[in-house]
């Protein structure tokens, strides 16, 4: 969908900006299917329990009829109440998550990045009655999700909520990235220093990103991307031919990353990672 936002950008009062990745229609649809199955299983369990109670009293003439009728009535009410409040209850106690959302790694949050209020939770679940039309196929909700930038169903718009993907991010381990790089540039520390001087943080980020994501590229893209980045850095500093001869573009970029992020590699002692800023 053109114009769709892939993340929700929040700027806090402290002036810090961060992004929350938005869930797409497919992951939301899968979570919905899991939730519907959960509701179905729940109703089957309740139905069996009520049938057992009803069967127990079936031998009694008046009470048996009453219990049987009461069981049918309760089943109708449970079906309605669970259908309406399943999402609201779980989103309240699990802070924006249902069984399906937990499994798919999704969470409902306020569109300003805040946690949900009870009112928001109830409203978005009441509007489910509209989103699921026609006949529980979720066509209205699906269309709304496909047409809105933040993939919001009508309940989300009314409640001011969005569904985000919960990304598990581990703490950075830069050592592991650069551990196995044999940097031939290290034999020319004065040129490495010039490279650091001439590079902006954006240059450094591009090179590091490329190394981090190298396995995500296809063969052709990998050659093309590293070729372009290597050319860019070759313009910054010219290393002597004896150390660049036979060096692939990718290895060239990895050397650059090592040079920019690791200082004194050839020296013994503690490692550190200098990063030059524009200021």
């Amino acid at each position: 969908m053109p114009g769709r936002n892939v993340s929700l950008r929040i700027r806090t009062p402290e002036g810090v900006a961060f992004q929350l990745p938005l869930a797409g229609p497919v992951s939301r649809g899968l979570a919905l299917i899991v939730d519907l199955i959960t509701i179905l299983l729940l109703l089957i369990v309740i139905s069996i329990a009520l049938s057992i109670v009803s069967a127990f009293y079936s031998g009694f003439p008046v009470i048996g009829d009453f219990v049987s009728d009461l069981s049918s009535g309760l089943m109708i009410l449970f079906g309605f109440v669970i259908g309406m409040l399943y999402g609201a209850f779980l989103e309240w106690i699990w802070k924006g998550r249902t069984v399906g959302k937990r499994l798919l790694g999704l969470r409902v949050v306020d569109e300003r990045g805040l946690s949900l209020t009870a009112g928001q939770i109830v409203i978005r679940n009441l509007f489910r009655l509209l989103d699921m039309l026609p006949s529980a196929f979720y066509m209205i909700g699906g269309i709304s999700c496909a047409l809105t930038k933040r993939c919001q169903r009508i309940g989300d718009i009314a409640a001011g909520t969005v569904v985000i993907r919960e990304v598990k991010v581990n703490q950075p381990e830069i050592d592991e990235i650069l551990e196995q790089i044999e940097n031939s540039f290290a034999t020319h520390p004065h040129l490495e220093a010039r490279l650091r001087q001439n590079c902006t943080p954006e240059d450094a980020r591009i090179a590091l990103d490329a190394v981090l994501r190298r396995n995500d590229f296809g063969d052709r893209e990998r050659l093309r991307v590293f070729g372009a980045i290597a050319d860019h850095f070759r313009e910054k500093v010219e290393f002597p031919e004896e150390i660049t001869l036979g060096l692939s573009d990718e290895q060239y970029v990895r050397n650059v990353v090592d040079t920019l992020y690791r200082r004194h590699r050839t020296l013994s002692g503690p490692k550190s990672y200098p990063v030059q800023s524009a200021t």
């Binding site: 961060f18 992004q19 990304v167 991010v169 581990n170 703490q171 950075p172 381990e173 830069i174 943080p201 954006e202 240059d203 450094a204 980020r205 591009i206 090179a207 590091l208 990103d209 981090l212 920019l260 992020y261 990063v275 800023s277 200021t279």
Partner: peptide, 12 residues
């Protein structure tokens, strides 16, 4: 001041 993506993502 740093071109480090992974740490930024973690902190975000």
């Amino acid at each position: 001041f740093a071109g480090e993506v992974e740490a930024s993502l973690f902190l975000e």
